[in-house]
Design a protein around this nucleic acid. Structure first.
Lengths: 261, 261
DNA sequence: CGATACGTCACGCATTATGGAACGCCTTTT
DNA sequence: AAAAGGCGTTCCATAATGCGTGACGTATCG
């Protein structure tokens, strides 16, 4: 059985014997914000002008930096790496440790999922400590407008799309009033940045879901906590919601989401 | 006066005193193709298993690599850097040295430009050795369907867009036949990958233009050689075209264009 | 026309990174 | 079942690597 501790992540300071590399990466971090002069780098990172110069030239020779009239900027090589990273990165794998952490903190069961056309696909589940479990398993596919997780994946869509998908999930048998209510709720969710969803199947399943955006700001996946309404009461909701949002923010940061501005 | 030699580019081997960094970047280069095991890296790069391990852990601790079940893959940090690089990179600055080289090789005048809505903006010009010069100057804006450079920027657009922009450049006074001819020519250009354009103003200006794509494959800028038809004869055209295409390829590589597939 | 600040180069010292050896854990082979 | 091989990991002595001091040429500013 797996030990409960998460994967041993080398926490940056953990790693010894790569000073040159670390300093070079520090430089890249500084340059993210915008062009920086070599001398400024030396000061901010507290290294000698010479070292800054050497590292900057090395990075430039590899295309990681380029020279502009007001200092060094990110270079073309990073475009290439960025594109390939997009293809290679497994969002779920990145998210899993954070989900585990959340599950341990709260005791609830945590899910991740992504959009597949008009469906939402559940990709991974971290089981919590509660006896009563939501049956949804990794691999399950549900109409996207029908789950909290799915709705979180739709938060950036225009209202017309919401309507179409909602009608689709109800297979047409739906009143105008219901549609209007759905849209209205989605609007609230979108402005709040998270979704609270009560199952319409009468099984008292309640979930809270939050979308996670990739580096381009596009919603890539969503995480959700789902449980019986018996556990997920109005009292615990505020704290829990905050915890989920915090976790989503951490994951977002880990997948390179541009900082909130 | 500037020396005729291009900017002193640190040509990778030029840079000394950054072994650790260079090896780490070599690792990233290997991983671009797909997940690689740490031991394989040690072999391919001819370094000890220990060193490979240390570098890989360092890169991972910073998010440049991530662990997958079949080795190390590019990490989420590269998404972030990629996005910011897209904002920061000055394609013209990257292109200029290559354009200079082309100009010296051929003697012709070389231009770069980008698209601005329905216009093409000339951004930089490397003057050649010829007495007779095309007057277009950096900063000039022309209707996009009216110049070779502009047409190169449109090669990926659907035919409807070609038609709209062509009519626009002619201010409506255009026959169906002319439109059909334009579309037909554009089709040829698109499949050839370059544009040959003879000015319709009767000034005997002829140009050859090639688009340059960014890391996502989207046309970002275009370069062109323009001259009096007196210089740009049918005899020199094949050689010149090949040279321009080669230069465009080099620039494309420099801005991280995914290899031709 | 000094004064400041930047990028660049050369050089000697010691900090830093290197590879060998060895270990535990797996899967594959015998 | 045992042996063999491959992988990721840790420890350690060694010297090679990367560090900062100092100095030079050049632009920017007052």
């Amino acid at each position: 059985m797996k030990s409960p501790t998460a994967a041993p992540e080398p926490s940056a300071s953990n790693v010894k014997g790569a000073q040159t590399l670390m300093r070079a990466l520090d430089i890249l971090d500084e340059v993210i914000a915008g062009p920086v002069r070599s001398a400024d780098l030396a000061r901010k990172l507290d290294i000698s002008k010479t070292t800054a110069h050497r590292l900057v030239q090395a990075l430039r020779s590899r295309g990681y930096l380029s020279i502009t009239k007001d200092g060094f900027a990110l270079g073309p090589k990073l475009l290439q790496l960025g594109v390939h990273a997009t293809e290679q990165i497994d969002f779920v794998r990145v998210a899993t440790p954070f989900m585990t952490e959340l599950s341990h903190e709260t005791g609830f069961c945590v899910f991740v999922g992504k959009r597949e056309g008009d469906w939402s696909r559940h990709l991974e589940r971290i089981t919590g400590t509660q006896r009563l479990r939501v049956a949804t398993a990794p691999g399950d596919r549900r109409p996207i407008a029908e789950t909290g997780l799915g709705k979180a994946l739709l938060l950036d869509e225009p209202e017309e799309v919401w309507e179409v998908l909602y009608r689709q999930s109800r297979e047409g048998s739906v009143t105008k009033k219901e549609v209007a209510a759905f849209i209205s709720h989605m609007r609230q969710h979108a402005s709040a940045g998270y979704v609270q969803h009560d199952s319409e199947l009468g099984d008292s399943v309640r979930s809270i879901a939050v979308p996670i955006r990739d580096a381009r700001g596009k919603i890539a996946i969503a995480i959700s906590v789902a449980s019986a309404a018996h556990y997920l009461t109005e009292q615990v909701k505020p704290t829990l919601t905050a915890a989920i949002i915090a976790t989503a923010a951490k994951i977002g940061e880990a997948v390179g989401q541009t900082q909130i501005r």
